[in-house]
Design a protein around this nucleic acid. Sequence first.
RNA 1: GCCACCUUAGCUCAGCUGGUUAGAGCACCUGUUUUGUAAACAGGGGGUCGUCGGUUCGAAUCCGACAGGUGGCUCCA
Length: 614
Amino acid sequence: MSDNTDNLHAMRHSLAHIMATAVTTIWPEAKLGVGPVVENGFYYDIDLGDVSISEDDFPKIEAEMKQIIKAKQAFERSEMAVDTAIAWAKDSNQPYKEELLNDLKRAGTTIAKDLDARELGTITDGDSQVENVSFYTNGNFTDLCRGPHVEHTGKVGAFKLMRVAGAYWRGNEKNPQMQRLYGVAFETPKELRAHLEMLEEAKKRDHRKLGVELDLFIFSDMVGSGLPLFTPRGTVLREELSNYSNELREVQGFQKVWVPHVTKKDLYEASGHWAKFGDELFQVKSQETSDELVMKPMNCPHHTRIYASQQRSYRDLPIRYLETTTVYRDEKSGELGGLSRVRSITQDDSHVFCRDDQIKEEIDKLLQAAIDLYSTVDMKLRVRLSYRDDSDAYLGAEELWESAQKQLKQAVVSNGMDYFEEAGEAAFYGPKIDFMATDAIGREHQVATVQLDFVQPARFGLEYTDEQNNAIQPVMIHCALLGSIERFLSVYIEHTAGKFPVWLAPEQVRLITVNQEESTVLFAEAAKKKAKELGLRVTADNSNESVGKKIRNSVMDKVPYTVVIGEKEIATNELVPRVRPDLEVSTEHDSISFDNFFGTVANEAKARVSKTSL
RNA sequence: GCCACCUUAGCUCAGCUGGUUAGAGCACCUGUUUUGUAAACAGGGGGUCGUCGGUUCGAAUCCGACAGGUGGCUCCA
């Protein structure tokens, strides 16, 4: 850590402390939890009993904080023995602090793994008994805290309280819920302003807002929460993305399959998902049979049935199935949000069944497909290699894991991908590669995933016959390049701010008539027909509005190409396109024949380019 | 599921501490206009103020429940 970030950290820590000072000044009965530094700021967990703080209280709290800051109270560090500290906590009526201190006293090392206690920071690794804990005092407020703090309350930079949220004490939903007050803080007002502007920008790009503005998808109370409906425009995006994702794999030998969306629960009992995730399944009642049915929450068990429908030879492998299909998960209501977390999830899912020695090559192909896809959509990609750790939470032979993890890494390295490794992040059934994409305003999102699976082949008794006529268990490789189309769209809409490249744009060309003379309208209709024959998504706006108004509408709909049609165009059969600024390389556009223009746009769509050659 | 906040026309929002037929802009419809690269003009239709219940002489406004949304917590095969 540089001096700079050290200082920033101390400032944020101090601000949490100052906020606690302010809150206890206003509400003396407040019981304090923990107040750590987080990305861009800090928070403090506070229990106020029946009092609930809302954002309306922020001005009051901020005013109190500013007074403390203005007073330049010195932060004085002191230490006391744990037992003394416990007595202090009891005395000050701070039961949460008391609990933390008791835990600290009881067992330093186990508690050191606890994030909350680590935040207090009085203990490090090793199993030494805790002796002293540190306190910071400013004015007449004292709080258990590791620090570090800045010298005095005047040195805390620029801050702003952002929101209040509920948070369980120590992150456990069985514990009482406290109120978490979040603030952001930076060294200078300028940096704070830049951060708030970034948030504004993010708000402008919010896919939920753009979804309405660009007419891409809707929700309906009558359909239910977390169940988006896609309009014609939004459906273009879904289909184009899905087709591309499928194409990338079909050239590699994947074959499309199809499975029903309702299935007997027996399938998931066999796969093991029922026991683990039964409460997240939508249950379906049959009126004709006694079958207990569910909406499918995943596709792999179905695909294993197709694999197992025939005897397989080592010569048949790898067998590769591909399907873009929707799964249904009954997420808890509070977890839903826009398109990023929904209850009907469309996956561009695929499963490879292969021999142990084929893993690397198969992974390699999938990585190439992912690299192609994310470079086409213009997003920076890096991957996390998620390995097992030493715990016994994993199924499958250890040698198999070793070999598989090695093959995953080889594939990632040989593709020159930016990667990092993390033990303990694997799925219980196998190691995986998680893809993180960075969007235009620097946020990183988890998107695609490639996972190895040793467990389902065993549970479903999958096998193939090898050269020596032995029955051998294949390895399964799960992969979704887009991940979930809904989640991908939520990220991608914000990445592009709704300015989709030509190949994805729901409307690629808009023709605008200068007037409503019959000759103009007929010419526009003929041009539109020509463009449609080339597969373009084109509309003609011959409404009774001014040209300026119609241009404005086209701009606001973020249409890549707008063409005005009037006497001039009709006479010369040429046009000068109006190009959406983010697409153009040069702002000078020559006139071009209609045929040439449509042909060029059609080629751009086919080539999935992100800039225009016009 | 839990905590906080929010819900007024298709969209964005106004409506002060409860008081006669709830407003605006955009969108939509009709008429006039025949338009040349980011908003022509005029008129009109449209809301049982999320739903249900309560308090009150009187509720968009206060209280409760439910639904939906937002930010978090927990979870995310």
